[in-house]
Design a protein around this nucleic acid. Structure first.
Lengths: 156, 156
DNA sequence: GTGCGTGCAAAATCTTTGCATACGC
DNA sequence: GCGTATGCAAAGATTTTGCACGCAC
């Protein structure tokens, strides 16, 4: 039974948001959003990976539609688009429970960890207000070296 | 006289760094770095723009070489690579006077402002150390709406 | 039934690479 | 002179788009 398309928890919200713009709730759109829900909040996927994961789950969705749907879901606020360097953009679920969060990226192996920080958000807000910008969201990308890669350096 | 290739202030450092790796100081490399110095520290250029600006300045440097040189200068630490969403990567001069700084990006018009914040850096460092990562640098990208675009909303 | 969304393949971007030549060292 | 860097053009990678058909509403 777990073979069937995962039903997005956001299903209702998604449908309403779509209909508001005269758009439609299609199986493909449910599958893409469902995949992110299934994987959980901390997962970062590229368009290619979304496409591949859906194929593995017996869901044929064309790559073009994956691209179109990802952009739609970002515009609608269901996904966030990440730019953590190295090879193409990635996407993650935008959960309301978990507001702005930030990324530690190991520049050697690409391992990525997330964290939250109220002081980062405050600092961003302060800087924005200072010149009259209205803050929407902020993302801190920290380029760093993870413990394993630090050890590799020593072992060399 | 101002027609000649601008001489990078980093010229010496660049040459030394290059020679350390058996590499060479070529006119093209001086021109690319010189362009960023000429434009100043707050300027963000794409590879295509660098190429175009050099042509305008009567400096024929092939686009392929621009790409190769940008990557080289990033690896050597003379430039920083930015990922502020929307259309391709951009590069900016990495000045020692001006360590980690952050970007406010208007999501409507793309206007970008820079700021610095000690508390952002502290928060990034704290998060990194907590899980054993060694911090290299951090960049906060704040998606926001600039005053002009806020006014446009009201005027609508 | 209407018209938005999809799949497919072609096109458009953006970036990298192979190879012969040029030139920094 | 040796070997790296460049220019060119072709190849790669990623993302977008045109069009006929299918399906959500």
């Amino acid at each position: 039974m777990s073979q069937s398309t995962p039903l997005p928890r956001f299903e209702g919200t998604l449908e309403i948001g779509l209909h508001k713009g005269g758009r439609r709730l299609t199986p493909q759109r449910r599958k893409v959003l469902g995949l992110f829900e299934d994987k959980g909040a901390g997962i970062h996927l590229s368009a290619e990976e979304v496409h591949h994961q859906l194929l593995k789950a017996n869901s044929r969705v064309s790559l073009a539609t994956v691209y179109r749907t990802l952009r739609l879901l970002v515009d609608m606020g269901f996904l966030h688009e990440l730019e953590l360097s190295e090879g193409g953009h990635r996407f993650e679920l935008a959960s309301n429970d978990q507001p702005d969060h930030h990324h530690l990226v190991c520049v050697r192996c690409g391992r990525t960890e997330e964290f939250e920080s109220e002081s980062v958000i405050q600092a961003g807000r302060a800087a924005a207000e200072k010149i009259g910008f209205k803050l929407l969201e902020s993302t801190l990308n920290v380029r760093s070296v993870c413990p394993e890669c630090q050890n590799d350096d020593l072992a060399k």
